[in-house]
């Protein structure tokens, strides 16, 4: 995992623009993507942790596309870049709500991005997971469908 403030290898595939445009905006951005959150972690907890690096302008919680409940990620925007850099340095890979959270640069929040992109509404990674993760709804969505077949008889 990258510890410093450099860009990680992840690139958002839905970015509207060329790869170099994307990289440029990542390098100037004050917005961070925060991942591997528990579904139960609140915006206020995130605010408390991230405000220790500087003043937070905005937090956008990631939501399940259908249920509109938190699905384990968020965007945190700072007013100035250097404070976002501090978060990359000192928060990435540390614990929030007993989970090691991932912090990465983001090109900036655009309406619509707060929703999970998986088929079932959550994040894609929660569909294919095979481990049991209590903080993120138990087993992966696909696996849990197999384990407990839908008993809803509607």
């Amino acid at each position: 995992m990258a510890t410093s403030v450099e860009l990680s290898s992840y690139r958002d595939q839905h970015f509207k623009g060329s790869r170099s445009e994307q990289e440029r905006s990542l390098k100037e951005s004050c917005t961070l993507y925060v991942g591997n959150l528990s579904f139960y972690t609140t915006e206020e907890q995130i605010h408390e942790l991230f405000s220790r690096c500087g003043d937070v302008r905005l937090i956008v919680m990631g939501l399940d596309k259908y249920k509109k409940t938190p699905c384990g990620f968020c965007f945190v925007e700072y007013y100035i870049r250097s404070e976002a850099e501090s978060a990359m340095r000192f928060v990435n890979g540390t614990r929030l709500d007993d989970r090691l959270i991932r912090v990465d640069w983001d090109a900036g929040f655009i309406e619509g991005r707060q929703y999970g992109r998986g088929k079932t509404g959550g994040q894609v990674r929660d569909e294919y997971r095979t481990d049991y993760d209590a903080g993120r709804g138990g087993y992966g969505k696909l696996l849990s469908q197999k384990i407990a077949p839908n008993t809803d008889n509607r």
């Binding site: 220790r52 690096c53 501090s86 340095r89 000192f90 928060v91 540390t94």
Partner: peptide, 11 residues
């Protein structure tokens, strides 16, 4: 440095 810088090294 900010407090978190010291704390994160100790962690």
């Amino acid at each position: 440095q900010i407090t978190l810088a010291y704390g994160s090294v100790l962690v």
